[in-house]
Design a protein around this nucleic acid. Structure first.
Lengths: 334, 334
DNA sequence: GTTGACTATCTCAGCGCTAACATGTTTCGC
DNA sequence: GCGAAACATGTTAGCGCTGAGATAGTCAAC
């Protein structure tokens, strides 16, 4: 081995005076190894600073220790939180995540999926149920394990982990009705991209309808959710419908923006106008009045998904749906 | 090819009636190919749904289209934003990022680095200059390109992209002094983990000292930054030092929390107490009074790092430092 | 003392692809 | 119309590792 060559199994084997295969078995802790041999190999690895080449390993064993992760976005803090859960669950294993960002674009998801599959991952974690036909076909053909996160309101390919957004919306409606609110408004964001916001909206409407109520006014910002969008969209909604007593927001980002609008406009939150969000983000709970909202457990979703996937290396016959549930956070704004 | 076999180059080659090598060249767009051959191969790939095996490719060419990314955390929105910049710059290339999270732990960084290097990445992107000796050695031996992000206040291994946090702290001090503030307080978070917060603090103190001033009071929360920590730590600081007229926070999360405290405690922001943050997060600008702070351009840092790294596949002799700079956001809180 | 079971190790082929070189075929200047 | 350059493709030898089986050596049971 010259000075500028990266050491390989062969170098380690030669130095330790054993065969390459033995070194390989020591590294992977597979098969019986004499204690003396193990330590001799360990010393050789240490001496050379040997790092196994996973590309070679993966090629030889036709399977990698990779988990492909497809997220729609990183700007929305919700997805980094899911990713944290994934990282946490993988931390004690030899697996590594490989992340792609789709920008809520099913076509891009398809492209990224195909480049992830090129690494022969053990599993793919993706978001929601909206995939192109080609994406479904690739996932089927590859026969890797697949988890679809966030949502459980449809039939998964393999495993789904999340919560029922329809039920969450419904629970929001019930909660507010029970507290005496009757004149409802809704402030949302682009739900073509965010199908789950739409499901919550549907659940909300159903709860209202069952109670003989309807939305008095609604407005959706045509773009991704953000604090500023929430602030401005609520302002705009109130110019058209000043008599509402509660506003449901598509999520906490929007709701926090709504709170800021009230602050600036001198609207007394809850007494004059109740605010309700979704997600249970830290920022909402740090407000002078903690936001009334629903906690959606993103970290748990990511963690659970990994655990379920690693339970079994091959796709079982039965599809699995894990409901991570949600809690209503009472807060002080509704 | 039986029904349940994944197609390989050989299958494509056979179907298209050319050699494997020709298929490989079509895929990689390398060398001259007759238009007719190209389309015939393309059709065969399409028909079989062939996806190249990157492990094999990477093994054969001893180099992968991977970029290893080491981030200290995903909870702090700043790092997902850097990652977005990285993704954005890679979107038009064939490269893919592979992300590890270190939790601000240099030992963990070392472990993750070694498993990233096992994939023979083209480059490694990491954060700051705090690495273990072993980490430095691995990076040196592997001879991959290395970018160290966020900070430029030390000598990089290869490329550094970021801003001078010392200067940013200094600029904060100058800005506030010019606006007439004299009685300063500081609210921070754990700076053992976040060395850059420390540098900003040092810069701030220097500016004060040059103006014949000192910090009247300071308090550091013993943990990561958060809105709630900012709120509570400011509250605590003010019980000890009620006469200060400006507070500098270690970052925007903390400052927004401070703003919330003022809101609850009836303190008139700016008139009674000026608040200043760092980062220029959206949330700060969505407040009823936009936060006075410094914009740190995280997206640009990630994007620039990738661009610099891809300029040249091998490490140049000269170390490169790219200053992405910062802007003071006037805001309304100071 | 032979058999079988177990332990510890080795040998060897091959995973799917690419680099380097070899070969054959046009094209074009003069 | 000939040689050189440019083009288009084929052949071959691995990249570094792992899986399957082969090969010894050890020990207990009969």
């Amino acid at each position: 081995m010259t000075q500028y060559e990266v050491p390989t199994l062969a170098h380690v084997a030669k130095l330790a005076g054993v065969s390459e295969n033995t070194v390989s078995r020591v590294i992977r802790n597979k098969g019986p190894i004499a204690e003396q041999t193990r330590s001799r190999v360990a010393r050789a690895i240490e001496t050379l600073g040997y790092v196994p080449n996973r590309a070679a390993g993966s090629l030889a064993s036709s399977g990698s220790l990779l988990i492909g992760v497809l997220l729609p976005s990183l700007s929305n803090i919700v997805f980094p939180e899911v990713l944290q859960g994934i990282h946490a669950a993988l931390a004690t294993t030899a697996y590594q995540p490989m992340v792609g960002v789709t920008n809520y674009d099913a076509g891009k998801e398809q492209d990224i999926l195909s480049s992830l599959l090129a690494w022969q991952p053990a599993a793919i974690i993706t978001t929601g149920f909206d995939h192109t036909e080609a994406t479904r076909r690739m996932l089927d053909n590859s026969r890797v394990r697949v988890a679809e996160l966030m949502d459980i309101d449809a039939e998964p390919i393999d495993v789904a982990v999340g919560l029922s957004h329809r039920q969450a919306g419904y629970a929001t409606g019930r909660h507010l009705i029970e507290r005496g609110y009757r004149r409802f408004g809704y402030v949302g964001h682009d739900w073509v991209a965010d199908r789950r916001a739409r499901l919550r909206y549907d659940g909300l409407c159903q709860a209202l309808s069952e109670a003989g109520l309807t939305l008095r006014a609604e407005e959706r910002f045509n773009g991704p959710s953000s604090t500023i969008a929430g602030r401005d969209t609520l302002a705009s909604l109130l110019t058209r419908a000043a008599d509402i007593d509660a506003v449901v927001f598509s999520n906490d980002d929007m709701a926090v923006g709504g709170f800021f609008h009230c602050l600036g406009a001198g609207i007394v939150v809850r007494k004059q106008l109740a605010l309700f969000g979704f997600n249970g983000l830290d920022i909402g709970q740090a407000l002078p009045m903690p936001l009334s909202t629903i906690r959606s457990n993103r970290f748990l979703i990511g963690k659970t998904a990994v655990e379920k996937l690693l339970e079994n290396p091959t796709r079982p016959e039965e599809r699995v749906v894990v409901d991570t549930g949600f809690d209503i956070i009472e807060g002080a704004t509704a």
